[in-house]
Nucleic acid binder design. Structure first.
Length: 214
DNA sequence: AGCACGATTAACT
DNA sequence: GTTAATCGTGCTC
């Protein structure tokens, strides 16, 4: 049975959290209990104010305050004048570090995602940090959101164990102007395409309230 | 108060 | 491959 990821999951080294988030499920619950979710297939680690690729490099600001807070909370930032991106805060309270969710495999509530975000191909629904936020309706309202709270509208669920051979690591995306060694640190984690099939990106069955036609 | 820029995306050639 | 879109943020004056 899947279980909610708890505070202790996130209060660990950021590289460990990023690696172990692969295969986990990000769930958005809307009014009425409707679930939309996706399985994490790509994530990046941003670690401390020494990491010049990390938003915490300039110290604590209004924008990045959530990253300095307790683990298991969301850090949602706005960029390029139009996009929101979602991070999960890691490590100890007071240390700025987080995992950027870069791509999910659509699982539940695909119809609602399509309504929020028109795209010809289902595979493009959540294949990008800003795309997945659009698909799940995540914006600044979720900055600082406690992902471990009992009634959280946004949270994570455990997934199947992912073998190391199914994981690829490489440099993070979009850091072309960031100096070395930060630009090249292999802190981007991806599930190999061959492992995606085993994740069963299908609409998972949910208890139905009413009568069925079958 | 002004300004340059960005952990991106979609739509181009 | 290139580039426009679009604006909150953080920095400088």
């Amino acid at each position: 049975m899947p279980h909610r990821l708890t505070r202790s999951f996130f209060q660990r080294p950021t590289l460990t959290v990023a690696r172990n988030l692969l295969g986990a499920r990000l769930v958005r619950v809307e009014r009425g209990g409707l679930r939309s979710s996706g399985l994490i297939i790509e994530a990046e680690a941003y670690i401390g104010s020494e990491d010049l690729g990390c938003h915490a490099r300039a110290g604590r600001t209004t924008r990045n305050a959530s990253m300095w807070g307790p683990p298991g909370h969301a850090y949602v930032y706005f960029t390029y004048g139009m996009h929101w991106c979602l991070n999960v805060v890691t490590e100890a309270d007071g240390f700025p570090a987080a995992v950027l969710l870069r791509a999910l495999l659509p699982a539940e509530g695909i119809g609602r995602m399509r309504r929020r975000r028109a795209t010809p191909r289902e595979t493009d629904l959540m294949s990008g940090p800003a795309r997945l936020c659009q698909a799940l309706g995540i914006d600044r309202r979720f900055d600082g959101h406690d992902l471990c709270a009992p009634q959280a509208a946004l949270f994570l669920e455990s997934g199947p164990r992912i073998a190391d051979e199914d994981v690829t690591a490489g440099p993070r995306v979009g850091l072309d102007k960031v100096p070395e060694p930060w630009r090249s640190m292999p802190w981007r984690f991806l599930l190999r395409p061959s492992a995606l099939a085993a994740l069963q990106p299908i609409e998972s069955p949910r208890p139905s309230r009413g009568k069925r036609s079958t």
